[in-house]
Design a binder for these strands. Structure first.
Lengths: 220, 220
DNA sequence: CAGCTATGTATACAGGTGTAGACTTGCTGT
DNA sequence: ACAGCAAGTCTACACCTGTATACATAGCTG
């Protein structure tokens, strides 16, 4: 889906709903790839196989389209699965695989970090994150600090997307997915598992051998 | 901070070096605040108190100016301190404090994540990260996976900047700095205090100060 | 002081942006 | 079959972008 040219469809006869849908789908692709400011209405329209003005007709403005595109992008369960068990491992593995180079996986986090700079888009993005991924992940984590912990997990996720997939720093781009998943899981663990995590970080220089309590490492 | 300062200077008499410097300083501010695409040459020039064309005169183009601005921004030791001892704690605390709301601290990470989307700027940013912060942090961490671990630490750093300072998700924006620093330290620990051998630290792997060929120099 | 050059400004250009208004086209109900 | 109206396109506008060219001036050097 969303291949190189979704505009190649054999021409859709006048159908408002289908056109609206085509524009929205094209917008998700373009906004994800170029960010809010970088994606132009004419470009989006061309991908949808339609004139640029249809965006204003169906969505009021570029901003309106963006808001719906963000919602659409964050709609399906992303990054975080749906089960509490093995959450850490699942997140880490999915993150490692999705951010791998060459994998042109459209991800809401790509959309996020390419659009967050724009003041017009920042608020929309924030609502999208908090309402969808943030809430879902917080629900899985639970506890009093669920939201904070969830957003820290998302911070690592977003940062990994940024450095590995967008900027492409070499060590991250070239690492094996399995090894990366291990390290990511270790970083995620303090926020996804264990509700304690108070002091002890300082001179607890003891080798962090503590590998997942209860040996629940093999989540699946 | 970064308010209406630079342009208000009492007029600098014709001085090439000083003008160049003023432009560069203004560029760091503007690029950090608005990103590569968002910052306009006229705006930068106005902040520097000169005409827009001076950018082309002294830096060849907007891209050339950006390259030097990135180098300048990443120049001084950022985020990571200079000592191996207590690295985790230091990083976590600095990150928590710098990303606090209201603190308009100009940070290279802000510049990075606001400009990384732009394909013209991505490469320059990557070199800046790898050459400066990445190398420095990797040198402090040591071990065979030093670079990878360092970049994972930077990923968490960048992500925290993004979600807390740029997007402004509420749980992250509202948390107490001390508590945040604790959680960040716990997340950083697996990569900073890794199980790897600590012998390789002896060697100074970090070699900052090299301005990257092609990015330096400029008109005349 | 005269004059030359480095330093800086002003104008203009070609292209791009989002969007408003007038226009055309195709489907559908009677 | 023929209106009527929704669906879609075209043109234009006001503004903004980076930069090239032509021009003005300050300040050192003879």
């Amino acid at each position: 889906m969303l291949g190189p040219m979704s505009a190649a469809q054999p021409a859709r006869r006048r159908d408002a709903a289908a056109t609206r849908e085509a524009i929205l789908a094209a917008a998700v692709v373009e906004f994800t790839e170029y960010g809010y400011a970088g994606a132009g209405v004419r470009q989006i329209a061309e991908r949808a196989g339609v004139s640029a003005m249809m965006i204003n007709r169906y969505f009021g403005s570029k901003q309106g389209l963006f808001a719906e595109a963000v919602d659409r992008s964050f709609g399906p369960p992303t990054v975080v699965g749906t089960e509490r068990h093995g959450l850490t491992r699942t997140m880490a593995r999915a993150l490692a695989e999705n951010t791998a180079h060459g994998t042109e996986h459209l991800d809401p986090f790509l959309l996020t970090l390419r659009s967050a700079s724009d003041p017009e888009a920042a608020d929309i993005v924030r609502q999208g994150i908090e309402a969808h991924v943030g809430a879902r992940l917080a629900g899985l984590i639970g506890g009093s600090e669920a939201e904070l912990r969830a957003q820290l997990g998302l911070a690592l996720t977003a940062g990994t997307w940024l450095l590995r997939a967008v900027v492409g720093t070499r060590a991250l781009a070239g690492v094996d997915n399995d090894r990366l998943a291990e390290l990511l899981a270790a970083m995620l663990e303090p926020v996804t598992e264990g509700p304690a995590t108070e002091e002890a970080v300082t001179e607890e220089a003891a080798r962090p051998g503590r590998p997942a309590p209860g040996s629940g490492s093999a989540a699946q």
